[in-house]
């Protein structure tokens, strides 16, 4: 049975699209047939992060309006054979989405895919609502700062009250916490919330911690999802996230401050 996973956060700029790209790539790398849908109609970004912006001809709105078939709009990823991208429309706004249309697309995708990853826009308006409504599982992306945590809290509240699973009284949406842009050094200096602080407020299971890294920006600009980077903490962290999502029991890395060269030499850790 195909699973619908929403990548959401409430707040903008925390790493939803970066996560959508790497997470869906990670699922595909493990052999799962995966599609990632950009719900940010009007502010299309996922295609840039995935490096397929020059191949976008049709988008989700064309499919919803019945102008083209789903097959025509899906773009095959350049890095993974099992991954497809359904881009958002850049020239329309979120009102062009509707629940019936989204439901129809998801039903059709469920026939041929194992995982459907929905990249939610920021905010709690219709675009975000459409992205989360049909979700079976949710990855709540949070930065270690109070406003991001509060917005995530809000989104969790909406998931628990207004998603299809809540409205129809089904088993609730499975919630996962993903802390991104985490810098243990700044946490220790008291400038950032710790993972424990965040969990104390949100109280949902932790799926992973992605360290703050310059390589994310480089990856975005070059159109390569961060998970494909060589020798990168971020890539390792995203691979762990995918592993845990698939049920593997992996130790949580990147939460402690990296031991410096001297410290390691002197047996610090």
């Amino acid at each position: 049975m195909a699973k619908v996973i929403v990548i959401t956060s409430g707040k903008g700029g925390v790493g939803k699209t970066t996560t959508s790209a790497s997470f869906s790539s990670g699922l595909a790398l493990r052999g799962n047939k995966t599609v990632v849908i950009d719900f940010d109609v009007g502010l299309r970004n996922l295609d840039l992060i995935m490096g397929c912006e020059r191949r976008v001809v049709y988008d989700i709105i064309n499919v919803i309006n019945g102008e083209v078939s789903l097959k025509q709009a899906l773009i095959k990823d350049k890095n993974c054979d099992n991954l497809f991208i359904l881009p958002a429309s850049q020239t329309r706004d979120k009102d062009a989405l509707n629940l019936e249309g989204v439901a129809r697309i998801l039903e059709e995708l469920k026939q041929s895919f194992d995982f459907i990853v929905c990249d939610s826009p920021a905010g709690i308006e219709s675009g975000a609502f459409m992205a989360m409504y049909f979700a079976d599982e949710a990855l709540v992306v949070t930065n270690p700062e109070v406003s991001s945590v509060r917005d995530s809290d809000r989104i969790l509240g909406i998931l628990a009250a207004k998603s299809r699973r809540a409205v129809e009284g089904l088993e609730p949406v499975r919630e996962h916490l993903l802390v991104t842009r985490y810098d243990p050094k700044r946490v220790n200096a008291g400038e950032m919330l710790s993972v424990t602080d965040i969990q104390e407020i949100l109280r949902i299971p932790l799926l992973g911690v992605i360290p703050e890294s310059e390589s994310v920006l480089k990856a975005s600009n070059s159109g390569t999802p961060a998970i494909h980077l060589d020798k990168s903490d971020v890539a390792d962290a995203y691979r762990d996230v995918v592993g845990r999502f698939m049920g593997e029991d992996l130790p949580m890395r990147f939460v402690a401050e990296k031991a410096g060269f001297l410290k390691r030499l002197l047996g610090g850790r």
Binding site: R150, R154, L156, G157, I158, A160, A161, R203
Partner: peptide
């Protein structure tokens, strides 16, 4: 959990919450 933005009203009676109530 009762999360930010949520409002619970126990009309005419008492309210008991067993999980966290967030800011």
């Amino acid at each position: 959990p009762v999360r930010t933005g949520q409002r619970i009203y126990a009309e005419g009676g008492n309210l008991v919450v067993l999980a966290i109530v967030n800011a």
